[in-house]
């Protein structure tokens, strides 16, 4: 167990180092020049040189990286060239929206996928299983940018069940309005997760229910319900957890579409906004934060496996 965690931590540190290098160089090596953004029409060769020097852009790249990363460690992700807000400030305001969307969509996805998979696995290829399989297969072809406009059309424009765009308010301001605004985008984001979770859990449950220890549990006189919840579910959730880690990670930056469509200023929204403004400090900061968050979440889920299935840590 200790060894397993130690190995994971070393890998984690290596990956975070590479991710930070990638975030830095990705933005640096791209065309587009922050100096032009700052100076705008005042860009004379002399001014450019001065600003270049002020920003440290005349130093070698590796030196710039170390200056940047040492600032990052002090919690300083730089400042926006356009709005002059600090990057940490921008991230601090937008990250909670993503967290809310992720929690909302994942709760929905679990609430739908688990009962569906449990019912379907009871009679593989039975009627319910076939219906559930084809439904999720259809959902696989409904990515957010396809289903979100349709749901907005139906529920916000046509039936007025959900509020339209730009109706998001922070949780602290009005809980009800906040939850109401979060629900539609959460449904959109949940769709993709439902498909993945249902298919993985169904397949693993079907395999687990054929194991000897399930027959053993039946011979103990346990109810089907108890066998499903206590004996079958946990050993069947490992691949689901693995993919939940990946899904949640990809959602951190994968909420662009709903955020833009519904005008919610989350991380994805801010990233697109800053990218369009050539605001490279902010892009760099968001990229780093998103990438590190994804890596950390995957690490957390790797650790969760060992709790759910003690076999993994022993291997």
């Amino acid at each position: 167990m200790g060894r397993y965690i130690a190995k994971r931590v070393v890998l984690l540190i290596i990956i975070i180092f590479f991710v930070s290098v990638a975030s830095f160089f990705l933005v640096h090596l791209l065309p587009g020049n922050p100096v032009d953004t700052i100076l705008g029409p005042n860009a004379t060769p002399a001014n450019t040189l001065i600003v270049n020097h002020e920003l440290g852009l005349d130093k070698p790249l590796w030196e710039q990286y170390f200056i940047w990363i040492s600032h990052v460690f002090q919690g300083n992700l730089g400042q926006s060239y356009t709005t002059h807000q600090t990057t940490s400030n921008i991230i601090g305001q937008s990250f909670p929206i993503d967290v809310e969307l992720i929690i909302g969509s994942q709760l929905l996805a679990f609430a739908v996928a688990f009962p569906m998979a449990m019912s379907a696995s009871r009679r593989p290829n039975g009627l319910f299983d076939q219906v559930a399989n084809s439904t999720t297969f259809g959902m696989l072809a409904l990515p957010p940018f396809v289903i979100a406009p349709v749901l907005v059309l139906l529920f916000a424009v046509h039936w007025h069940v959900f509020p339209g765009p730009a109706s998001y308010v922070p949780l602290t301001q009005n809980l009800w309005t906040n939850l109401h605004a979060i629900l539609l985008p959460s449904i959109v984001l949940a769709m993709g997760s439902i498909v993945v979770y249902f298919r993985l859990l169904r397949n693993d449950l079907i395999a687990t229910l054929q194991e000897d220890f399930i027959t053993m549990a039946r011979s103990k006189g346990l109810t089907d319900r108890r066998i499903m919840w206590r004996h079958a579910l946990r050993p069947s959730s490992v691949s689901l957890l693995a993919s939940a880690g990946v899904t949640i990670g990809s959602l951190i930056a994968g909420t662009f579409v709903v955020e833009l469509l519904l005008q919610m200023p989350g991380l994805g929204y801010q990233l697109i906004f800053s990218v369009n403004q050539d605001d490279y400090t902010v892009v760099q900061g968001i990229t780093l934060v998103v990438a590190v968050a994804i890596v950390l979440i995957n690490f957390l889920f790797d650790f969760l496996f060992t709790v759910v299935d003690p076999r993994i840590a022993r291997e």
């Binding site: 194991e211 000897d212 220890f213 027959t215 053993m216 549990a217 011979s219 004996h231 946990r234 050993p235 759910v308 299935d309 003690p310 076999r311």
Partner: peptide, 11 residues
């Protein structure tokens, strides 16, 4: 049961 390796719930 036959096989004690697979007949106890491993988790």
């Amino acid at each position: 049961f036959q096989d004690p390796m697979t007949s106890l719930n491993p988790v």
